[in-house]
Nucleic acid binder design. Structure first.
Length: 385
DNA sequence: TCTGGGGTCCTAGGACCC
DNA sequence: TCTGGGGTCCTAGGACCC
């Protein structure tokens, strides 16, 4: 028998776009889109006026990272291609992503929350879970205090859901966006959660949702009413049982305040698809670069890796991965490059390549790692194949 | 006018060992 | 010198999330 818990989920409102609005307050109220690699930063004209790039005329492979609510009203959402967005909202302002600034504000808001309630679980740059079980005060005033602390530290707004578990809080933080607080009492499951679409459940994505729809299961209430045997038959033991549980609002997962990373990776989509033979020199250069940046990440974060993997995405969007577990931990860029090359040899390269990535898995903190320093040894010549 | 980059977790088959 | 089962590691792919 576990004690009744109180968990909050906090989600920053249109985080990247809102950080940009702190830098460029004159854009407040405008449709603003953050994304794209080569989208130029604003320039200043001879008259001292800032010139912002419009979405109109964008050409490239970038996608929307975040958009302001004004841009969302025009149909521009995260993940959408910038070309498509330009057709929907040609006058929207396009800003390049500034991850350094986002990480800075991410730290600020998380520290602010921790000053009110210390048990915080990181869920990426703009989201956290907060364990409020042992924090004094009623949920509404706690929610308000946390939001005020975040605003005081950053000038940004967020939305919060407070319920008995992570599953429900995650759903609830989205119910009154932006700048909302949603508190769900245990007896409100049927009235407030069951009417919602099944895909609102964190973990039910496009594929599962499609399968559910084929079974005439559209809402969380439909899911709760579905016979467990039906779910087990269509989704397997693990997923089927999980679906039956979450539909009843049951979720026992703890708030996890720290966990060791499992993998670190670097990948890049080329500006145009590259051919293994014709663009070999360019590919080789990019490949080396990815390996060196990955090594840099490992060293900076203090991990060594025993499994090096590669990822390729072809022109037709087919993705293949290969990996190789090594006898010793590695951390050096040249060793990573050698292992990654071994992986690459196992991939047929008869199609144009769109993306190349390198991954380090089986991580161990360097203090515990058993790696052999081969950096001093002569390095083999780099080849793409 | 197609679709980024960085992650986690799960499944499933084969190798290998006991 | 046949049959069986469990456990772990490795690899590849895929769903999903932010």
């Amino acid at each position: 028998m576990t004690a009744l818990r109180r968990i909050a989920h906090l989600d920053m409102d249109a985080f990247f776009a809102s950080v940009e609005l702190l830098t460029y307050p004159e854009l407040r109220g405008h449709a603003v889109v953050v994304g794209g690699r080569n989208a130029g930063a604003p320039t200043t004209s001879a008259e001292g006026e800032k010139q912002f790039l419009r979405l109109r005329g964008y050409a490239g492979r970038g996608v929307v990272t975040t958009s302001t609510y004004e841009a969302r009203a025009l149909g521009v959402f995260s993940g959408m291609g910038l070309m498509k967005s330009a057709a929907l909202a040609p006058e929207a302002i396009l800003l390049p992503a500034n991850f350094e600034a986002y990480r800075h504000f991410s730290r600020l808001f998380k520290e602010a929350v921790a000053s009110v309630a210390p048990r915080v679980e990181d869920r990426g740059i703009d989201e956290i879970y907060i364990d409020l079980t042992h924090v004094e005060g009623d949920s509404l005033s706690l929610g308000k205090r946390i939001k005020q602390a975040v605003f005081d530290a950053t000038g940004l707004s967020c939305s919060i859901g407070i319920t008995a578990n992570k599953l429900l809080s995650k759903i609830c933080s989205d119910l009154d966006k932006p700048d909302g607080i949603t508190i769900l009492e245990p007896d409100e499951l049927k009235t407030r959660i069951w009417p919602l679409a099944a895909k609102k459940i964190n973990g039910i994505g496009p594929k599962a949702n499609e399968k559910l729809a084929a079974l005439e299961i559209h809402t969380i209430g439909d899911l709760a009413a579905a016979p467990t045997e039906l779910l087990l038959a269509h989704f397997g033991r693990s997923t089927g049982a999980w679906m039956a549980q979450v539909a009843q609002g049951i979720d026992e997962r703890e708030v996890v305040t720290w966990s060791e990373p499992k993998s670190i990776s670097r990948e890049t989509t080329f500006e145009r698809d590259l051919h293994a033979k014709h663009d070999r020199a360019r590919l080789s250069e990019i490949f080396t670069n990815l390996c060196m940046r990955l090594a840099d990440d490992l060293q900076r974060k203090g991990y060594a890796s025993r499994t090096i993997g590669i990822k390729l995405k072809f022109a037709d969007f087919q993705v293949v991965t290969r990996d190789l577990t090594l006898p010793d931990d590695v951390i050096d860029g040249h060793q990573i490059r050698l292992a990654a090359t071994e992986c690459l040899k196992r991939v047929p390269l008869d199609q144009r390549i769109r993306l190349l990535g390198v991954r380090a898995g089986s991580l161990r903190p360097v203090q515990a790692a058993e790696y052999v320093d081969r950096a001093a040894q002569p390095t083999l010549p780099f080849e793409f194949e």
